[in-house]
């Protein structure tokens, strides 16, 4: 790495860093709000993992391995936590800053560009998602659901989920007009949570439904996190990662285009 290219990277990232700094300062007084989002996922883990898990016991995966239902569901709920953390941060909070508080209007009068704003929001969403994931993984460890050191790879895997959903959330934020639009988003999110392979392998669904599941971003996140935390590697994981990264890049790029169009009027 030459000095010049280091300088270039820094010059590229510094503006988005100041957007991140703004969110940090703004949320400093509201950490309880941020952390409470993580608690929700823990409740899910208790309800489904231990509640339902104690009744189901062990299950046999399509490839023949036998594991406890709780260890099967936990990674999926982890993936869900990463999704919710970033999706809510980027969609609802960005929407509020964009349409209600007009925060970006002020920011674009500075050297900052819409792309810097979008990227800064992605960094912030990653941090928020990272907090949820961290809380969750600690809980998984405490309940003995982490079978090997490999399962710690679930953490970086969740970063890809967080990336993908921050891109999606940003784009949605630019399309939403009013709060009721979020009900639609939540409905879709809930459907993904229920049918994206959280509770059952995709193979359990009827044939016509399976392609729909394959399109769901959450499905790819769940596959990735589950595979890693169970130490069950497959080449499909590369596809999962690529799909998530593609969504992240496309979402962020599209969102900054939409922001520019709305604010550079």
């Amino acid at each position: 790495m030459s000095v010049i290219s280091y300088g270039l990277v820094r010059a590229r990232l510094e503006p988005s860093g100041s957007m991140l700094a703004r969110n940090w300062v703004a949320m400093r007084r509201a950490w309880v709000l941020v952390v409470s989002g993580g608690v929700e996922s823990l409740l899910f883990l208790f309800a489904f993992g231990f509640g339902v898990g104690s009744m189901v016991g062990d299950i046999t995966l399509p490839d023949g391995t036998v594991i406890s239902y709780t260890s099967y569901v936990a990674p999926a709920i982890l993936a869900n936590a990463a999704m919710m953390g970033t999706l809510l941060e980027t969609s609802i909070n960005v929407f509020a800053k964009f349409k209600w508080m007009k925060v970006y209007d002020g920011i674009l009068n500075t050297p900052m560009r819409p792309g810097d704003v979008a990227l800064g929001e992605v960094w912030w969403a990653l941090i928020r998602g990272g907090i949820y994931v961290g809380m969750f993984v600690i809980a998984m460890g405490a309940f003995g659901l982490l079978d090997s050191w490999w399962s710690l790879l679930a953490v970086p895997a969740s970063v890809f989920i967080a990336l993908a959903f921050s891109g999606i959330g940003l784009t949605l934020a630019t399309f939403f007009r009013e709060w009721t639009d979020f009900d639609w988003m939540m409905a879709v999110v809930f459907a993904m949570f229920l049918f994206g392979g959280t509770f059952t392998p995709v193979e359990a669904y009827p044939g016509f439904a399976q392609p729909i599941v394959y399109v769901m971003p959450l499905y790819h996140g769940i596959e990735l996190v589950r595979g890693l935390s169970l130490g069950d590697f497959s080449p499909m994981m590369v596809v999962n990662v690529l799909y998530l990264v593609a969504l992240a890049v496309a979402g962020t790029w599209f969102a900054q285009r939409r922001l520019a169009k709305a604010l550079y009027k």
């Binding site: 300062v25 703004a26 007009k102």
Partner: peptide, 15 residues
């Protein structure tokens, strides 16, 4: 190099 005071201030109300 510009300083801008927009009509509606656009102050950051979370700060």
């Amino acid at each position: 190099r510009l300083g801008v005071v927009p009509q509606d201030n656009t102050l950051d109300t979370m700060l």
